[in-house]
Nucleic acid binder design. Structure first.
Length: 137
DNA sequence: GCCAACGTTGGC
DNA sequence: GCCAACGTTGGC
């Protein structure tokens, strides 16, 4: 299983919105960036991802699971753009902030730190485990 | 609210 | 196919 990170501005689509969709989940649509799309094409059903609130909050708030692999994005007729479906699994015991991640030398290679504008990104196994430890406090 | 970084678009 | 212009994202 691989790990990922999904970034969303909470005023547009928040963790609470995602939770409200339940097991039915929701398309991660609206991505118009090739790098992000390519990562979504690599995702497999059952992979997991962090749900990150950008802008005002800047913290990882929950865990999601990929429930449908890449398919055409229903919000556009442009067939270049695809998306996966994800569902909320559980919130983190405590959110892990961008500041905390940046303060942690073991996470300095994270895409989140080095390419802040990429909205869908891979997370290494060791990064995933370490962030979960941080969330447990 | 500003601005740096970056990706995309389109003219040539 | 290059590159300038432009638009968008997101941290600060």
């Amino acid at each position: 299983m691989r790990y990922w990170l999904f970034k969303s501005e909470p005023s547009t689509w928040s963790w609470d919105d995602q939770v409200a969709k339940g097991d039915a989940g929701e398309e991660w649509d609206g991505v118009r960036n090739y790098q992000a799309r390519n990562f979504m094409r690599e995702m497999a059903k059952g992979d997991r991802g962090f749900f990150y609130h950008s802008q005002k909050d800047r913290e990882i708030v929950g865990i999601v699971e990929i429930i449908a692999e890449a398919h055409p994005d229903s919000t556009t007729d442009d067939d270049r753009w695809e998306c996966v479906d994800i569902k909320a699994i559980e919130p983190l015991p405590a959110p892990v902030s961008l500041d905390a991640i940046k303060d942690e030398p073991r996470l300095k290679e994270m895409v989140l730190v080095n390419n802040s504008r990429l909205s869908v990104q891979p997370v290494r196994d060791e990064e995933w485990d370490f962030i979960l430890e941080m969330a447990k406090g």
